[in-house]
Amino acid sequence: MRINRRKFLKAGGAATLVMGVLPVAQALAEKRQSGEAADVKWGLAVDLRACWEHQQAGCRECMDACHYEHNVPVGQGSKEEIKWIWSAPFKEVFPELEGVWEEDLANSAALALCNHCDNPPCVRVCPTKATFQTKTGITVMDYHRCIGCRYCMAGCPYGARSFNFRDPRPFIDKANPSYPTREKGVVEKCNLCAERLADGLKPLCVDVCPHGVLYFGNLKDPQSEISRVLKDRFSLQRKAELGTRPKVYYLL
């Protein structure tokens, strides 16, 4: 076989390209795997039936504590309500399962909050990166940057995002002095208590739950409380078929 100059150059170029690109690709792949905080991915689990039974008995500890802690306004009416963690009938939290359950179960109270999706559509659509995912997999908001376009509300398939249609302050009865409020014109949502996690604490809803029906921990650590409970028990994720990979689980 004769190799002329053109062929030689072509082959050489291709080889250089492969050799040059491979290490970069490998490095990228490694970075994705090991990553800066690849060792931590926070997750939360709700024991559905236990939580329902305590809610029937009037328990609202997690919701009240969260709303006080984060200065979440209360009482603007259902159209403008701000929700971080709230209670809704099972058939609304899992609308695609409607009809499978008995009537009392369908109407039983289930907790709903931001799912802190592993593949969050709200982050994908935000035009300013005001909503973003932290290294530990939490979806949080930078309220300084939000322009209030509400694209994330259209993007979220869980109704976990709320918009401040007016100044929220008149709707806050007693303010927590160590946490800001939001202002008119920005979207807000559950931040999984990023400010507490930074200090090594658990999210407030998990901490204050008097019945221990909320589980929290690092999904990447097989020994963590949440990993063990998810291994032991069957669990549901909301609208898992959408590919958002929620990190809030419902234990059956």
């Binding site: 300013t128 008119k184 014109g185």
Partner: peptide
């Protein structure tokens, strides 16, 4: 927009 004054964030933080 809820915060029209921040309109240019779309340009300052292109996404």
């Amino acid at each position: 927009l809820g915060k029209p004054a921040r309109l240019f964030n779309v340009v300052f933080h292109p996404t």
